[in-house]
Structure formats: C-alpha cells, structure tokens
C-alpha cells in the first residue's frame, strides 16, 4: 500500500512526464491553446497509459525478460527476448489507440468529433511509450504498482497541459516582442514552470 501511494505521488509531481522528462512535448505545445481540448487530450492520454502499462508489464515479465519464459517450460529459462521489447510495446500501444478510437467513434460520437485528430495522434505521443520504457527500467514489483504509475503519469501530464492552456489563454492579451510570439514564449513559460516543478525533486517519499 505504501509503495502504491509513493509511486502515485512521485509520478505526478517529482517525475512529472513533462517537466522532468519532456515527454509528450509535441502535443503539449500544439494542443495547449485552449483549456477544453487540453482537458480532453489529457484524459485520453491518461486512459491509454492506464490501459497499456499493465499489459506491457505482463508482457515484459512473462514473455520478454531474460528467463521470463520459464513458466512455460523450464528449458526456456535462458531465452532473452528483450531486444523485441520496443517493437512489442509500440504495437500494443498503436493497436490499443486504434481500438479506443473505434470504441469512442461507435459509442460516443460527440466526444469523438471534439477530440478529432488528437485520438490517433496519441499513438505517437512520447509520454505513452516513455511510460512503458520507464516501467521496464524501474522494474516494479507487481502489476498494481505499474498501473498506479501509469495513472499518476497520466494525471501529471493532464495537470501540466491544462495549466499551460490556461496560461496561454491569458497570454493572448499581453504584449510580447513579435519574434517571440507563439512558440517562443510558450517555451519560456514551460521552462519557468519546469523550474517551479523542480522544487519537488528534493521530495523523499
């Protein structure tokens, strides 16, 4: 229980996907123009992270890792398939995104049209693959922790993009040097927010 809680808090604040690792930056910059779409994309990303991390965790521990196949037959104990992990992870993520897209299109057409192009783009959001790769690196003790890590990372990403969108909405009224307008000032604000989030990095949970 303690591990679950600390993983959750760490993944939201200390190891925030955007401010600590810069993952999912492209869609973060492109979609943070207003709060409503930012919220929609953030929720979609959280959902996909929560779904794919446990699946990838199982695959990693029961198929890909060195000796992971020994539950099938003892003689497979020496097999190491970890070089396949990139391919397998991205295949799971891409097919899951396609699946979610179809489900949403069928059962919630209103949500589908408001998310539009962003749904398929989630497959190439670095935050999702990054979540799986960090999960592989951190070697969590069980599938529950991996799921919680996915949930926390997603919520951290959601908080960041919604905050950014809110700031950019207000920014429309301020007087910025012309060459800095748009992309430039967004980078600077993200940098400043990142410095703010660094104060969590000393946190020991």
């Amino acid at each position: 229980m303690e591990e679950l809680l600390s993983t959750f808090v760490r993944s939201i604040f200390v190891e925030n996907m955007i401010f600590a690792y810069y993952l999912g930056m492209c869609s973060f910059l492109a979609v943070s123009k207003n709060v409503k779409t930012a919220l929609g994309l953030g929720m979609a990303v959280t959902f996909i992270l929560v779904c794919t991390l446990p699946i990838n965790y199982m695959l990693e521990n029961y198929v890909l890792k060195e000796g992971a196949l020994s539950w099938l037959e003892p003689q497979f104990a020496g097999v190491n398939l970890s070089f396949l992990s990139l391919l397998i992870f991205i295949a799971i993520i891409a097919s899951f995104t396609q699946l979610v897209e179809m489900v949403v299109e069928k059962f919630a057409p209103a949500l589908y049209s408001s998310l539009g192009i962003f749904l398929p783009l989630i497959a190439v959001n670095c935050a999702i693959l990054g979540g799986s790769l960090f999960m592989q690196q951190k070697a969590f003790s069980n599938v529950g922790v991996a799921t919680v890590y996915g949930l926390g990372s997603g919520i951290g990403w959601l908080l960041a993009i919604v905050g950014m969108a809110a700031i950019r909405e207000k920014l429309a009224y301020s007087d910025i040097p012309k060459p800095l307008k748009g992309l430039g000032i967004t980078f600077i604000i993200t940098g400043l927010m990142g410095i703010g989030f660094m104060c969590f990095s000393g946190l020991n949970i």
């Binding site: 810069y22 060459p179 430039g184 000032i185 600077i188 990142g194």
Partner: peptide
C-alpha cells in the same frame, strides 16, 4: 538542469524569427 534547455530553444527561435520575419506569428 532540464528547464534551461527550453529557454535556450526559445532564444534560438527568437534569433531565427527576427531574421526571418515571414515566420512570425
């Protein structure tokens, strides 16, 4: 530290866009 990378990129964009006026938003 990571946040400074963003600020360096912002400066590069600033210089680049003040030289290429047609890219300004």
């Amino acid at each position: 530290l990571p946040p400074m990378a963003l600020i360096v990129v912002a400066v590069i964009i600033w210089v680049h866009r003040s030289r290429n006026k047609d890219l300004q938003e």
